[in-house]
Design a protein around this nucleic acid. Sequence first.
DNA 1: TTGTACGCGTTATCAG
DNA 2: CTGATAACGCGTACAA
Lengths: 340, 340
Amino acid sequence: MLLESITVYDIAREANVSVATVSRVLNDTAPVRTSTRQKIMAIIEKHNFQPNVLARSLVNKKTGMIGVLFPDSSNMFFPEVFGGAERAAQKLGYTLFLCNTFSDCSRESEYLNSLCERQVEGLLFMGGRINSRHCPDALVQEVVHIQKKIPIVLINGSLPGHPCHRVKTDEYLGAQLLMQHLIDHGHRRIGFIGGTAETTTTFEKLQAYKRSLLANSLSYRQDWVRLGDFSMACGRKQMDQFMMMPERPTAFLCMNDYVAIGAMKAAISRGLRIPEDVAIAGFDDTQLASAMNPELTTVSQHSEQLGRQAMLILSKLIQKEKVKKLTVLEPTLLIRQSTQ
Amino acid sequence: MLLESITVYDIAREANVSVATVSRVLNDTAPVRTSTRQKIMAIIEKHNFQPNVLARSLVNKKTGMIGVLFPDSSNMFFPEVFGGAERAAQKLGYTLFLCNTFSDCSRESEYLNSLCERQVEGLLFMGGRINSRHCPDALVQEVVHIQKKIPIVLINGSLPGHPCHRVKTDEYLGAQLLMQHLIDHGHRRIGFIGGTAETTTTFEKLQAYKRSLLANSLSYRQDWVRLGDFSMACGRKQMDQFMMMPERPTAFLCMNDYVAIGAMKAAISRGLRIPEDVAIAGFDDTQLASAMNPELTTVSQHSEQLGRQAMLILSKLIQKEKVKKLTVLEPTLLIRQSTQ
DNA sequence: TTGTACGCGTTATCAG
DNA sequence: CTGATAACGCGTACAA
């Protein structure tokens, strides 16, 4: 059951005017005699009348809604991003329609569909298929097709083979900064923990990891790269594995803060001290990083900025303005206790 | 610009049928000859036609949308709650419309308005005015008025003087369990940190705190109750204050996990050991609690359950079923390293 | 089984 | 300044 029971007709009748006039005072779209305007306003107030946005959107073809797809609300990084987007959206007169895909591609497709049917005016896309290194073409096409009709901005991702508007952090640079920091602190044996080989975000960091080793004449050992997923559990499990190796790294680059914290916990429970015995670094600078003890060295993606930028670009796209396809934000290295 | 360019008329014309028939195959609402059905389906597929939900909702008066108001996406507790609600919603065929009020009452009002205009079928309400101990009547009336037309479920809150459907954790009991645990462990001097005197959630815990002291013949000292807000910063600041007192508690009950962690950090940075020198307990069992080192003793509100229950009740309300006004979930004490 | 025509609540166009 | 009236895209009695 919907709220609406009272319509413009009702208030028009009560005011002895036509619906057109009511609409005019509602939208201030044409001059109305002050006396009639006031009469109408009074009746609107009296009944607490709210126009039905559905009907309105149906005619002016504007819903004021922006769809936002994100993979996981339990990873603080994403709420931070869409928090930034939301603030920007509000200033621009848009409302966000948040969709948690739970990193599930089919759910992603469903939401994509649903958002289109709901006539959102633009889409902010994070996670899932746009971070997949081998995304099935069907999934790519889905997005490509939608993009023909409605503007999309990808955040920290891409659609291989299809130019899209994108906003991203230079994750490669971020990982590189981290590596350099570790190396500068004398670490010669560095491991990598977390992420999946399938995801672009992992791949970028892994590339930076490898090249940094190479550039510093340090050896790359495959068994010192232990992927998994993006969770604390993964960090814990993989660090446990490292612990059982005869020869292990003295420092670890982790996929994100969650993984890093899991790794920290595993190390600590084995009696290791951080950073004296082992250095650990995360990524994203979620609240967790500075909450930990010792505080976690990490890289900030300026998550709110990321969301804000994406929303700004999307709004320009909606206004049919030309915008450059790619916007890259520079990450910031945050050196804390866990590595020095 | 909206996606829709092709309508039922277009596909009707192409199939040489009437829009009615198209609508019938779309909704399977009446028998259609198999051959024509297939012809129509083919054309729909071909053009990738998607019906306009706006128009549809306008006639059947169902949007399938549930509005969700929450105060702060940067407090993990809330994403956990609406995560639970979202899973439940999906099974029931609803889509959540998430609105971050940033604990700002005016923003809350705006969203409330916007959601009604958007014809959501129900509302899940968290934070803000429903947790205010002295909520201005105007704000209460806003909600009361909406409630007459559209079902609302309040989560962990209430509207003083107005019966509402509510789902809540027994926070009083939670705090009591925590107190008993501390007392059982020999603590005789216990402090309280965080929250604001204005919020009901703080008040409930504070009541439990006071009564537990009384019931155990322990003295209540006003200067050992240091409120503030719900942030890590608050925990840190207040613990710093405690540190400068000549006589201070040996244990602390904190408003939530964030405050507790702030307090922990402050204590640690002063060289205190946890739990040997000082015991600290949080509330909510967010991811943070088990991520910390030492792990944080806390109380689980079963946040996902909370969201799920609320959504279930709301859906019954929408179906006009009778549902009991109040549902209380029992919290669970989680004893971890920070207190023993 | 299918088509016609109206209604859903607004906005917009065009006369007056 | 104001009032009919036609869209907007779809569902659905009612009739055929």
